[in-house]
Design a protein around this nucleic acid. Structure first.
Lengths: 232, 232
DNA sequence: CGTGCAGTTGACGACACTCAACCCTGGTGG
DNA sequence: CCACCAGGGTTGAGTGTCGTCAACTGCACG
């Protein structure tokens, strides 16, 4: 890909929107593209963190292995997100989470050195990173606040939250292919429970899934689930 | 308090450690001290965010009200922590959490304007804030990963985590007065369950509580709880 | 001396987890 | 061409952890 084209794409992302081409160049020093196949790991939790990455296409789930051998999904990284930037601050740091591709994805890889030289010395960039981090933290906090709700509502909250983050989508289809297992890992439940829950919702005509792509038919009724209770 | 003394204190905190007096001054522009009484709110979730604060003494719990009227504790802010800084980025932002004093506490209040002028334009300060935020996020992620563990282990993890954050303490006494209710709010459980759990631990001689101050007698056995299972 | 907060205990019940099948699909290799 | 397997989805039965409700104690404070 030519640099000009890349810059155009980057300007579409909040992180880089206000940066001139001149400011952008040093941030991308030594960048290299990388394709990641479905279910491959870009970074692995616990590994020494030498690089960070910028998502261009596809999606990644950031997962932490739990003490019991399952996975817990912390975040879904979509195009425009930065993965592993925070840990660049710590010398000899290790990735706190693994990043696993959901479907074929592409990123650009950048080195810790670039972070120290260019990213860290720019107050603007740091502030933007803070912003991304802040959003992510709020999501985690929301989830913690919702942790005691019945499963149905936690799933509903998750689906709506994902829809929210993709304003461009046609309003009802989730932009990422999601298996029931992944939903379970994200809300902290078992696959079976998630399946039972979502079957109910399907039968109630609230949503539909077609080959891992979930379509929400009645956003209103999902939202209603969060207020009161039950599918009646 | 004189400024000189204040600066000395601030230099003791990671956030300001590397800053000269000259760099520090603009960051503190227009600062005012505030005493907060036990259980009073410094900021309230949902309120328009006009100020942020720096904790000097005491402690704060950052809580989000849950949909069911309970509180979920997101974080314990100790001296040296900044409260509400992140949301300064967003014009018209509202605090995502309430900050409630645990015991009498003091802070210095700073205005959004100072943040925009001084804090945001310093790459060093932004990077430090990032660091603080990163730690906090890792804690939340750990908790999410542990969410499915039995209650006993979640409590054990919480207590150890708090001890970790206070290396100066005499190794076994928690630095913050914690009620069972607060522990319950932090791990996402009911008071009664927490009480049952901790009574067991007391009887097993693992910990002792004296007027809301928890002392851990056998750090090793608490840690062991996290690996295998049960108090045997 | 009442009120509010913290801690405690017991009985009961429910939501969700576990385990164990089973179906369907697509891909791979003999 | 068919057998086999892996990944995803589904269902049912049994179980357990934890939440709910209720009642009671001790203490501090105004």
């Amino acid at each position: 890909m030519e640099t000009a084209q890349l810059i155009k794409i980057l300007h579409g992302y909040p992180l880089f929107r206000d940066l001139s081409e001149k400011e952008l160049a040093p941030l991308l020093e030594g960048h290299r593209f990388k394709n990641v196949r479905h279910r491959d790991k870009l970074f692995t939790a616990g590994e020494a963190a030498e690089n960070f990455a910028l998502v261009l296409t596809g999606a990644f789930k950031l997962v932490r292995p739990t003490p019991r051998g399952e996975d817990a999904i912390m975040y879904f990284s979509l195009p425009g997100d930065v993965i592993g930037a925070l840990v660049m601050l710590k010398p000899n740091g290790t990735y706190p989470v693994s990043s696993v591709a959901m479907g074929p994805s592409t990123v650009i890889l950048l080195s810790r050195a670039v972070y120290k030289n260019a990213w860290m010395s720019s107050a603007t960039v740091q502030a933007k990173l803070n912003s991304l981090l802040y959003v992510r933290m709020c999501i985690l906090q929301d989830e913690k606040a919702n942790a005691k709700l019945p499963l149905q509502q936690r799933i509903a909250a998750l689906l709506l939250k994902i829809l929210d983050r993709y304003p461009e989508s046609d309003d009802s289809k989730l932009p990422i292919p999601l298996t029931r297992q992944e939903i379970a890992d994200a809300v902290g439940a078992s696959v079976e429970s998630v399946i039972r829950c979502m079957s109910e919702m399907s039968q109630a005509g609230i949503l539909r899934t077609e080959d891992k792509h979930i379509e929400i038919l009645r956003t209103d009724r999902i939202a209603a689930l969060l207020k009161d209770d039950s599918l009646s």
